[in-house]
Every structure is written in C-alpha cells, then in structure tokens.
C-alpha cells in the first residue's frame, strides 16, 4: 500500500516555503556554519535573518555591552538588557534561539583580534557587522587567507554598503581602501565609547538602512552556499536610501595589497 499524505503536513515544516525556492540549497544551509562578528545593529539583523533562513550553527562575537541608545535598531535587545548592561553577544544568542529553537547560536564575548579563525570548527561564511576599519581589515585578512567567503556590511545613516569577498578570486576588502580609510582606522566608533581612545563623533544609525544592508549580506551568503556565487555582488553594493539609489560597483585587485602580493594558498584551498 502506498504511503498516504497527511493534510496540512507541509505547514508543519518551518522551512517549507524556503524549500519551494528552486535554487536555494536548504540542505546545505542548515548544515553550514556562520561566524557573525559584531552583535550590534547589523549583527542583530544578520543573525535574525540567518536563523529564519534555517542556519543552525552560528557563532556571534562581540565584546560590548548593551546600552539604551542601541534600542532604536536592535531587534533582540530590550529595555531591561540595557538597564542590566548585558553582553550583546549573549543576548543575541539567547533571543535568536527563541526564534529558532533548533539553532545553536554560540556567543563569544571577545574582540575579534583575540579569536583564532583557523581553529576549528571552520566557518563556511564570515559576516562583518562591525563599526571600525581595523577589525574589518583583521577579519578580511584572516578570511581571505583561509579561503572563507567574507561578507562585510557598513552603514552610515541612510547610506550603506555590502562588500562580498570570495577568495581566492577577485579583490578583497583592503584592495578597495585608500588613505581616507587608514587615517580613521584606529578610531573605533564604539556605541558605548569604552574602546574609544579619543573623541569621535558617533555614526548615525537607524533601523531601515540596517535592515536593508543586513538582508543583503545574508542573501549573498544564501547564494554562495547554494552554488550561485556567480550571481553574487561583484564586488561592492552601495545603497543610498535617501536618494533611492542602489548600485553595484567593481573594484580591482591592488597589487600592493598584502592579501594578494604574498598570499600562499591555505591547506584548505589546495
């Protein structure tokens, strides 16, 4: 006797609607590991979209604590979290697990510079949800060296940017930087100001731009993991929400960039 179908069964599968998107490799997505660096505005939105997309293994890294001024753009943070000055990474991990109980979201309270990316388990995708250039460059360098796709987001008010780095092909984040980046590199745009060594104006941040940029970051990861890297942003998308502009701009490999001038393939790329 053939197996009978159960009425309404498809609505019991939380990823059923995702599975209906032909090119989306849900099987691969649920098995993939993501490293999200930064649990502030972008980090909140990226983790939200990751767990809703079906990712089950996520590590969230952040060294900061929640303050009240985070609450205009961080979906996982509550008033009481700010009052108690809880760790951002821990709160994001706990609340993301409420959205998807089968997801394992691991918080790491640390600076990214103190984390060894080459130690296992190796992530399949790295997300940069940072607020400073020094940390971005660190993450870019390590991801590129290890051959891990790196998807970096940045916002400033109603403007945003997503940079997709797919080693060993193409330019990296550093290739697209210039003196203006390096001049402000050590200025940390910390929301709490704890890490700032001197006064730096706060970067304006609001939720609509944050949502757009984070959503694009996650969508690019879905493409990478579903074998559609050729359809990814090459190489940087600039978004201007005030003027309704969204443009893909190409960068080129900088022969003087340390990532390209003395890069030897990592074991995992051989």
């Amino acid at each position: 006797m053939s197996e009978a179908i159960k009425l309404g069964e498809i609505d019991e599968d939380r990823l059923d609607r995702s599975r209906r998107i032909g090119w989306l490799d849900v099987g691969k997505i649920v098995k993939s590991r993501c490293l999200v660096v930064g649990a502030g505005a972008l980090g909140n939105e990226v983790v939200k979209s990751l767990v809703l997309s079906g990712f089950k293994e996520i590590v969230v890294v952040d060294m900061d604590r929640i303050v009240r001024s985070n609450l205009n753009r961080c979906v996982f943070f509550r008033e009481e979290d700010a009052e108690s000055r809880l760790q951002k990474a821990s709160v994001v991990a706990a609340r993301a697990a409420e959205l998807s109980p089968t997801a394992r979201v691991t918080p790491v309270v640390s600076s990214i510079q103190d984390i060894d990316l080459s130690s296992s388990p190796r992530p399949d995708v790295v997300f940069g949800c940072l607020d400073n250039i020094a940390a971005r460059l660190h993450l870019n360098a390590h991801s590129y060296h290890l051959g891990i796709p790196y998807i970096d987001g940045g916002t400033n008010g109603f403007a945003g940017r997503v940079h997709v780095v797919l080693p060993p092909e193409g330019p990296c984040l550093q290739c697209g930087m210039n003196r203006s980046h390096f001049r402000i590199m050590e200025k940390r745009h910390s929301c709490t100001g704890i890490e700032a060594s001197f006064y730096e104006p706060k970067v304006p941040a609001e939720i609509t731009t944050t949502s757009v940029i984070a959503a694009i970051q996650v969508r690019e990861a879905l493409k990478v993991l579903s074998g559609k890297s050729e359809d990814c942003i090459r190489h940087v998308a600039h978004y201007d929400g005030l003027r309704n502009r969204f443009e893909i701009l190409e960068t080129s490999i900088d022969p003087g960039c340390p990532m390209h001038s003395r890069m030897e393939p990592h074991d995992s790329q051989r």
Partner: peptide
C-alpha cells in the same frame, strides 16, 4: 567633509586610491 572614509567612482568602477 567630516573625517571619514571616501571612495571615488568613475562609471561603474571604484578607482583604486594608490
């Protein structure tokens, strides 16, 4: 302009600073 990072584009290409 405020101290910050800027890039220069020509058409669909971002020009390398150096």
């Amino acid at each position: 302009k405020d101290a910050g990072a800027y890039v220069l584009r020509r058409g669909k290409r971002l020009l390398r600073g150096q």
